[in-house]
Simulated scan of single mutants.
Amino acid sequence: MKLKRYLLITKPGIIFGNLIAVAGGYFLAAQGQIDLTLLLATVIGLSLVVASGCVMNNCIDRDIDRHMQRTQGRVLVTGQISLQAAMAHGVLLGLIGFGLLWWFTNPVATLLAAFGFIIYVGFYSLWLKRTSVYGTLVGSLSGAMPPVVGYCAVTGQFDTGAALLLLIFCLWQMPHSYAIAIFRFDDYSAAGIPVLPVKQGIKVAKQHIVWYIVAFAGAALMLALSGFAGYGYLVIALLVSIWWLLIALSGYKQEVDDRVWARKLFGFSIIAITALSLMMSIDFRVVPTQALFAAL
């Protein structure tokens, strides 16, 4: 079905993951005061922006996708959708998404969504993904933007809570992405993508993974310690961070199969960020305005 092709090119799995994150940021900031119209506009608008970015990424990556086993069946590679049709699809999704955000949320949330889109499509997809080992780090800024947009849709400003969300989700992206690059090592090598495990080796990538998880744990705990989330969130953040770190450290065992280990690490990264997003949605703290740091 042609409709299914246009749906697949938007990467529905990524959109769904971002739905949970943007909702987490929204509910954290709303502190129980839910504006259903604002919530729906934020979730739908940002989902369309993310979908637009994914379509553009597919258009840009159609040449390297031919060399990767997991992407050889994508519709732009097989010719099931023309490049012109895909581009038009992406532009339309973006226009509707940004329109919803601008009309129903506020300029701060809309500009942050635009920032994430530009980072993902312009800096990451068009440039750094193909040329630099730091592409993953820069790309993490776009991956971290959904909860920040959800938060700022409510507050209308980029404050300490938004900064902590940005830091948490940026740090989470790194072990998550490196794990993918390890168990898809052959694909990335064949496509010539200079991710850290390919460029500097899996051993170096494992070291980075451990330190990023430690940093992630510190940032995640700060959301509660600074008064934005409650003790339930604090306990869950501590438990998932410790468990994730233990999985990372198990990669140093001599008998470990790196690809099996990386898949396990990747799988738990999804559980970890989902758990945190859900907990910040239900275990927020009502923070008096004067207790917040000044907007950055």
Rank of each mutant, 00 (worst) to 15 (best):
K11N: 11
P12H: 04
I14T: 15
N18F: 10
N18Y: 10
L19T: 12
I20K: 03
V22Y: 01
V22N: 00
Y26P: 02
Q33C: 07
D35Q: 14
L36C: 06
L38I: 06
A41F: 01
T42M: 04
V43S: 08
G45M: 03
G45C: 03
S47M: 10
A51G: 13
S52E: 10
C54E: 14
V55L: 10
V55H: 10
V55K: 08
M56F: 15
M56I: 07
C59R: 09
D61Y: 02
I64A: 07
D65C: 09
R70M: 05
V75K: 09
T78M: 11
G79I: 03
Q80Y: 13
H89S: 12
H89C: 12
H89T: 07
H89G: 04
V91L: 15
V91F: 14
G97E: 05
F98W: 04
G99Q: 05
F104R: 02
T105K: 00
V108S: 01
A109Y: 03
A109H: 03
A109P: 04
T110S: 14
L111H: 09
L112H: 07
I119M: 03
L126P: 07
W127E: 09
R130G: 11
V133L: 13
V133M: 13
V133F: 12
Y134G: 09
Y134K: 11
G135S: 12
T136A: 09
V138D: 02
S142C: 10
G143E: 00
V148L: 10
C152G: 05
G156L: 01
Q157F: 04
F158Q: 07
G161H: 01
G161E: 02
A162S: 10
A162L: 11
A163Y: 06
F169E: 00
C170Q: 04
L171W: 04
L171V: 04
W172T: 03
Q173E: 10
Q173N: 08
M174L: 15
H176R: 03
A179Q: 08
I182T: 08
I182K: 05
F183R: 08
S189Y: 02
G192M: 10
I193Q: 04
P197L: 03
Q200E: 13
Q200P: 04
K206M: 12
H208R: 11
I213D: 09
A219R: 03
A220C: 01
L221A: 09
M222W: 04
L225Q: 12
S226F: 11
F228M: 00
F228G: 00
Y231N: 08
Y231S: 11
I242D: 08
L246F: 10
I247C: 05
L249N: 11
L249A: 13
S250Q: 15
S250P: 02
G251M: 09
D257T: 08
D258L: 09
R259S: 11
W261M: 07
A262G: 12
K264C: 07
I270D: 02
A272D: 11
A272N: 12
I273Y: 05
I273W: 07
I273Q: 06
A275N: 08
A275R: 09
S281P: 06
F284Y: 15
R285L: 14
R285P: 00
R285F: 01
P288Q: 07
T289M: 11
A291K: 12
L296K: 06
L296Q: 12
